[in-house]
């Protein structure tokens, strides 16, 4: 078995690494594109939610009627979001006919609904209980919970989980270096027995052995060079267009949006505004105390 692996890598290691690079590049492209699409989608979502929050400032009893308020916000946002997974062609036309027949605004297949906006909105509605809480909930955790259920956010080509793919892409540069070193050792281990076969007393007949030795050493060098080059390429791509940081940005944006919803429901400003408000209160209290002291001193002077 080990012999088989050794034979394979001693012949096809560079091809194997090139295949890995090609697969890595395809997955990387797809994962980045998907993350970028999700970033745009959630940016629009948060932007529209902010607008809706301003528009519905006058909504009465937000904390008691949280479900109604959330429903209002989501229905305002619904039509303004980019479409995520509505299939084109025959089914869209068929659904259009069905919508007309039913007098509905829009008809989509259940699969499209589950993988489209419907899924995200249902998950947000499912977290209504957290928004009802008078104490600020853990927004990143809620954001994680909601995003975990969103297949568009978590899956590549509708079946491949994006998080492990992203992790694999991140370790690929190190893997290429390891494979390069592996190839070097294989090359050297192939070259050394050739040296042992050489007859140093009759160098004329050792030409073929020397050629074979040099070829093995060349193979060792080539695999290292390929490993370093591929690693360099992936590292540059990971630096220029990082997938993880894009996803982290999306998470943060969404988490901040949830925080804004909670603050709107409980009619509270953000931490900075609250601090300014507290400072103003402290200042007015201190001013009153200072005034009281000044009056007290005046009265004391008059008495004395």
């Amino acid at each position: 078995m080990l012999e088989l692996v050794f034979d394979f890598f001693s012949t096809y290691l560079i091809e194997f690494m090139t295949g890995m690079l090609a697969l890595g590049l395809i997955l990387r492209y797809a994962a980045y594109k998907s993350s970028l699409k999700n970033y745009t989608y959630f940016s629009t979502f948060t932007g529209e939610i902010e607008k809706a929050l301003v528009e519905h400032q006058g909504f009465s009893n937000k904390s008691e009627n949280t479900d109604g308020y959330l429903e209002q916000l989501l229905s305002d946002v619904k039509d303004k979001l980019p479409k995520r997974s509505i299939r084109q062609g025959g089914s869209a036309a068929k659904n259009g006919e069905k919508a007309k027949e039913m007098g509905a605004n829009q008809v989509v297949s259940l699969r499209d609904y589950v993988s489209g906006e419907g899924s995200l909105f249902q998950s947000v509605r499912g977290e209504a209980i957290s928004f009802k809480s008078p104490f600020p909930p853990n927004y990143p955790e809620i954001a994680d919970r909601i995003l975990e259920k969103d297949d568009n956010y978590n899956k590549l080509f509708n079946f491949l989980p994006i998080a492990p793919v992203s992790r694999l892409i991140n370790v690929l540069p190190s893997l290429f270096v390891v494979f390069g070193i592996f190839g070097t050792f294989i090359g050297i281990s192939m070259a050394l027995p050739e040296i042992a076969k050489m007859d140093f007393n009759n160098l004329d007949t050792s030409g073929e052995i020397l050629t074979s030795f040099v070829l093995s050493v060349t193979y060792a060098m080539k695999t290292s060079i390929a490993g370093i080059l591929y690693s360099l390429l992936m590292t540059v791509l990971n630096t220029i267009a990082p997938i993880k940081s894009l996803r982290d940005k999306t998470d943060k944006k969404f988490s901040n949006c949830l925080e804004n919803i909670w603050m709107a429901i409980h009619e509270k400003g953000n931490e900075e505004e609250q601090t300014v408000e507290y400072l103003k209160q402290i200042y007015s209290q201190l001013s009153k105390l200072a005034e009281g002291n000044a009056v007290h001193k005046k009265n004391n002077k008059k008495v004395s």
Binding site: A99, V108, S109, L110, R111
Partner: peptide, 16 residues
């Protein structure tokens, strides 16, 4: 049972 179903969206005051 539900795999071939559709979801219809209605606006407020629409007749379902």
């Amino acid at each position: 049972i539900l795999k071939n179903c559709v979801v219809a969206s209605f606006k407020k005051d629409d007749h379902i």
